[in-house]
Design a protein around this nucleic acid. Structure first.
Length: 824
RNA sequence: GCCCCCAUAGUCCAAUGGCAGAGACAGAGGACUUAAAAUCCUUCCAGUGUCGGUUCGAGUCCGACUGGGGGCACCA
């Protein structure tokens, strides 16, 4: 049986989808404007996907939300750039390749093709001319160029350090990729390994990363700003020098409580620091220390995370001299002091620091109170008193409070050159080298004579060798090291035999600047042109998951600041506004195959259609909230869309009819809906915007059936407005409605109807009269009534006269035209 | 342990300090129909987690508590 369009009495989404896709392909309504475009610009960016299989429910939500925003600004007359690409390097491709004994390239590009065609079917409003993948040599060439630029500026460097090592992935991990002691990717327990690795000096930018957040206040979710602040973790304190018996150089410690210097009863150095090894060397405890160090190294991060872990350590039998009172303090080595924070050594003040107190208790060390507070003696309770109080037993500080004592002692230390005010950060430098194949090769040649030599710019990109000759299985060293033809090279400086760096870059490098590339995606001479940057950047609206609240966003902000310093950009924050969408859950938890609660996007699209799924996801609640698929009703969305679609067939006035003669109350409803829905979209309350459209659909239905009738111009005005508003979320239905209303595609560029302010004013509003805050009467007034007339009318209202019964009001609050409150 | 966010009908969610209900799901009833589906109409349902405060007026602001969620985690 053939299905002619006319026979579709009920709305047939499958037919409509197939009908419009090829037409849109031809019209390309989402091509962003070229340089001579006079419309104001808007850069709307969705976080680009990782190509692991087909799109899932999470993508569906994220891209539906990004689409609402992009399509809204297009309707509002902006020149919108809404690009997409693929974050295509990374471990899943490599692991899949190992499993199938194939090249990661094949797996990656196959998946990209699948996702790309799904996005087309999902009607994403992307500008397909600007697509790129981070694994394209034309893209990662610029990763390498940037790496070399950072290297030139001392911002990319190598150092030996105890790094996070994932035994599962057989690679090092950045601090940011260790979640609760586990590898972010494979959940293996992360261990420490001493390795020489590449770092980006993000710590140089700690203050700017922190202080520039002021610009983002109110525009990024407060939660994300908070997380970034905590991650950077700036603390204010002082460095203090302690002389060490039998050592020429003093040891510097960092403390946030220099006021408690007189309460120090011992010193602790990080067990895995060079200082600890030096202090133990040749002494009576050397073997005991070595054994302790081994046990510390063996402990995984998981062990270290145990909250009630007993304190351990070794008495090094060495002594530090307290600079303020000359006391001899025993020096201990322990793993509760971190080698890579502060100076790796602390003064221990057990009375006023819980960790020091726990250690003192375990080792039988003395406790001395120097800040007198209301609380009980920490030496008795083993609860450290960390609050404010009056300084005692503290020489010149006696009698001062905490804040004044900190200021005074810091001043004294600085005068005697024994210390200084200091800041520290929780943030560590970004470890960027990875011992894996599927990433950007690090463009450095190691020459015995010349050292680290960058690959010359004209030799970029330094491409990955073919994977077929290389064993990709993880073995603790980059697979590239085994590609001898590739690794063996000559030094670009002296020409002698040399070796390429065999590590690849963290894929977060790729995503730290990709948003700068879209406007210049085909540029072969530079990563991006300043003219393109000045046209489009910064990103006006970024949309993506909160999972990237720290990692990706922090790195991107860092790169932007570096590029700003290099004079390549004229701004220092890349993303002006940020929207973090929630997750799509099923029955209260994240969807997963193993949990058995996976809802397949393709099945849902098949069952209910693209528009209904997009609508359901957007209407489910505020975009930041998680959506539980068990709570949403896609069939309800189908019903609503059919209801809207049916209206387009009822309209009997001709296209282009003069609306001004139409039914006034429906016209008012239309203009109010346009106004309110627009406002809701701009404040990210998409669910509310849809509710406004539903109201208008209901009102129009009523007008057609039992009001002004289908021929009234106001009905056409309403249905056209409904179609345009629906085009943000249900593009197929909207386009179909638009055609039935006698218009040409694409509705996406039809334009948001101009709201007539005169139609936003109601003729009459109902006001309430309260006595002592309780509602006692209602009356209708003109919206323009003055407070005085309003108050007089309220006091003259028969119900109120009766209620007052002659009593004189103490006070009358009039808020024309809504409310009067009479206080007795 | 520290920091942050949230709490409104059976469910998902609305409400510039001013009438708690916009919208939807589920439920009930009716019209149409031989019947069903679809459609249309009507309708039921909470006083906003608890306690206190500010205010003429609090779901909304402040404080404490309870419950849920998230981030960090020996950062001196």
């Amino acid at each position: 049986m053939t299905t002619e369009p006319q026979e579709h009495a009920a709305y047939d989404f499958a037919y409509v989808q197939e009908k419009w896709l090829p037409i849109w392909d031809k019209l390309e309504p989402f091509k962003s404007g070229r340089p001579d475009d006079s419309r104001p610009k808007k850069y709307v960016l969705d976080m680009f996907p990782y190509p692991s299989g087909d799109l899932h429910m999470g993508h569906a939500e994220a891209y539906a939300l990004g689409d609402v925003i992009a399509r809204y600004w297009i309707q509002k007359g902006f020149n919108v750039l809404h690009p997409i690409g693929w974050d295509a390097f990374g471990l899943p491709a490599e692991n899949a390749a190992i499993k199938r004994n194939a090249d990661p390239r094949d797996w990656t590009y196959e998946n990209i093709a699948v996702q790309k065609s799904s996005m087309r079917r999902y009607a994403c409003s992307f500008d397909w001319d600007r697509v790129f993948n981070t694994c394209d040599p034309e893209y990662y060439k610029w990763n390498q160029w940037l790496f070399i630029e950072l290297h030139k500026r001392g911002l990319a460097y190598r150092k030996d350090s105890a790094v996070n090592w994932c035994p599962g992935c057989q690679t090092v991990l950045a601090n940011e990729q260790v979640v609760g002691g586990l590898c972010e990717r494979c959940d293996s327990a992360v261990t420490k390994k001493k390795l020489n690795q590449w770092y980006f000096k993000i710590t140089d930018y700690a203050d700017r990363l922190l202080d520039d957040m002021e610009q983002l206040e109110g525009k990024w979710p407060e939660k994300v700003l908070q997380m970034q602040r905590n991650w950077i973790g700036r603390s204010q304190g002082a460095n203090v020098q302690f002389n060490i018996e039998g050592r020429n150089e003093p040891v510097t410690i960092y403390t946030t409580r220099p006021d408690t210097l007189y309460g120090a009863t011992f010193m602790v150095v990080a067990a895995d620091s060079a200082l600890a090894a030096e202090l133990a060397a040749g002494g009576p405890v050397e073997s005991e220390f070595t054994a302790y160090l081994e046990s510390v190294k063996a402990a995984s991060d998981i062990d270290r995370l145990a909250t009630d872990r007993p304190k351990t350590g070794v008495d090094l039998k060495r002594f530090a001299i307290n600079p303020v009172n000359g006391e001899k303090l025993p020096i201990w080595a322990s793993d509760y002091v971190l080698a890579d924070y502060g100076t790796g050594a602390i003064m221990a003040v057990p009375a006023h620091d819980q960790r020091d107190l726990d250690f003192a208790k375990a080792m039988g060390l003395p406790v001395r109170v120097v800040v007198q507070s209301e609380e009980e003696d920490p030496a008795v309770t083993y609860v450290a008193t960390t609050g404010d109080g009056v300084l005692i037993n503290s020489g010149s500080l006696n009698g001062l409070n905490k804040v004044d004592a900190i200021a005074k002692i810091t001043e004294e230390l600085e005068a005697k050159k024994l210390g200084n005010s200091a800041r520290n950060y929780r943030l560590r430098d970004w470890l960027v080298s990875r011992q894996r194949f599927w990433g950007t090769p690090i463009p450095i040649v190691h020459c015995e004579k010349c050292g680290e030599v960058p690959v010359p710019a004209d030799q970029l990109p330094l491409t990955l060798p073919a994977a077929k000759d290389i064993d990709l299985k993880p073995k603790g060293q980059s697979p590239l090291a085994a590609a001898t033809d590739w690794v063996n090279t000559t030094c670009p400086t002296c020409g002698a035999a040399a070796l390429r760096d065999s590590d690849t870059m963290d894929t977060f490098v790729d995503s730290s600047w990709y948003y700068l590339r879209y406007p210049s995606s085909t540029n072969t001479t530079e990563p991006f042109s300043r003219a393109d940057i000045d046209t489009w950047l910064p990103v006006d609206q970024y949309v993506g998951g909160v999972t990237h609240a720290i990692l990706h966003l922090l790195y991107s902000r860092f790169f932007t600041k570096v590029l700003n310093d290099m004079g390549m950009l004229g701004f220092n924050e890349p993303f002006t506004r940020l929207l973090n969408q929630g997750m799509v859950l099923m029955d209260g938890s994240a969807m997963s195959k193993s949990r058995g609660n996976l809802v397949k996007l393709s099945d849902e699209l098949e069952k209910h259609g693209v528009d209904a799924i997009r609508l359901s996801l957007v209407f489910a609640g505020p975009p930041e909230d998680d959506v539980d698929w068990a709570d949403v009703s896609p069939s309800g969305s189908v019903k609503f869309l059919s209801r809207a679609w049916r209206l387009s067939g009822d309209v009997s006035s001709p296209a282009g009819v003069d609306f001004s003669t139409g039914d006034l109350s429906l016209r008012k409803a239309t203009h109010k809906a346009l106004h309110d829905a627009g406002f809701a979209v701009e404040s990210f309350r998409f669910n509310v915007a849809i509710a406004r459209v539903m109201e208008l659909v209901n009102a129009t239905r009523k007008a057609v059936d039992s009001g002004c009738g289908a021929a009234d111009p106001a009905v056409r005005e309403a249905v056209e407005a409904i179609a345009i508003m629906l085009s943000l979320v249900a593009p197929f239905t909207a386009e179909e409605m638009w055609e039935r209303l006698g218009h040409k595609p694409a509705i996406a560029t039809a334009g948001w109807p101009v709201v007539d302010p005169a139609l936003l004013v109601a003729d009459e509003v109902e006001a309430v009269i309260q006595i002592n805050g309780k509602i006692k009467g209602r009356f209708n007034v003109a919206p323009s009534i003055s407070d005085a007339d309003f108050e007089a009318a309220a006091l003259a209202h028969p119900d109120i006269v009766k209620e007052l019964n002659g009593a004189a009001p103490k006070k009358v609050i009039a808020r024309a035209p809504k409310l009067v409150n009479i206080v007795l």
